[in-house]
């Protein structure tokens, strides 16, 4: 029952959120600010994680295909598959759910408990749309770039670790990366990414917007935002994989 009413509240909020912004110039300014805050600000952590994860994945693959029957380029091939299909879109989105989600929820939650949202409301502003829409749009626009960068860095990290440890020759690894390359894998990853971006921003916006109380509740909302965004990402990952790959 509680889940149903929560989902209902979320859907009603989303209806409020998708309204035409009152003033285009202000909206544009907000959007650029959020693209910076939520997108560019996340690049550092994504870059570090991607390089190291790519490196580890390659080493794992190398140890597991340690058989003369399997060609060495399989290492590059398998690294590519796991990075593009799951690691970059899903795992990185989960990490971003922690970073971006808690930021959105605590920012909006603080505005709620300090009456800043009320102040906007009495000026005649649609606060749900004013506060949440730029964040959703910023995430949906920025995530695909972040994920593409993550893919590139993870594969580069894999190459670096494979070559430096001598587990795979550069030419084998690169051949593996190109072997039976399907553009659809990238499309599939980006479709997932956009959905995850929307879920993270909207679910976190929801928990921030419906914060009530004080500083303690802001903390709680932000935790709920991260936990529930993550659950939604995992759930939709399963659904989308079924839909797109089956």
């Amino acid at each position: 029952m509680k889940i149903l009413s929560e989902v209902g509240k979320y859907l009603i909020l989303m209806k409020e959120v998708f309204h035409k912004p009152e003033k285009a110039s202000i909206y544009k300014k907000q959007l650029l600010l959020e693209m910076d805050n939520l997108g560019l600000d996340s690049l550092g952590i994504v870059a570090i994680i991607s390089v190291f994860m790519g490196a580890v994945v390659t080493i794992q693959m190398a140890f597991n295909v340690d058989s003369p029957l399997i060609p060495l380029y399989t290492i590059g091939f398998a690294t590519r598959k796991s990075v593009i299909l799951e690691f970059s879109p899903t795992i990185v989105s989960l990490i971003l759910a922690g970073k971006v989600g808690s930021r959105i929820a605590s920012e909006i939650g603080t505005m709620r408990v300090t009456e800043q949202i009320d102040a906007l409301e009495i000026m005649g502003i649609n606060t749900a749309s004013f506060l949440i829409l730029p964040k959703i749009v910023a995430c949906v626009l920025m995530y695909p770039f972040i994920i593409l960068i993550s893919m590139f860095l993870a594969l580069a990290g894999g190459w670096l670790s494979g070559v430096l440890t001598g587990l795979v020759a550069s030419s084998d690894y690169v051949y593996g990366l190109q072997y039976q390359f399907k553009m659809f894998d990238i499309t599939y990853a980006l479709i997932k990414t956009v959905v995850f971006a929307f879920l993270t921003a909207s679910v976190s916006g929801h928990y921030g917007y419906f914060t009530s109380g004080g500083a303690l509740e802001v903390g709680r909302s932000s935790t709920k935002a991260v936990v529930n965004s993550s659950i939604m990402i995992i759930l939709f990952n399963l659904i989308l994989t079924q839909l797109l790959l089956a």
Partner: peptide, 14 residues
Amino acid sequence: RQEIGMLFQGGALF
């Protein structure tokens, strides 16, 4: 609402 100005007890500055 656009004709209303309000001062909140806690200020509520952005």
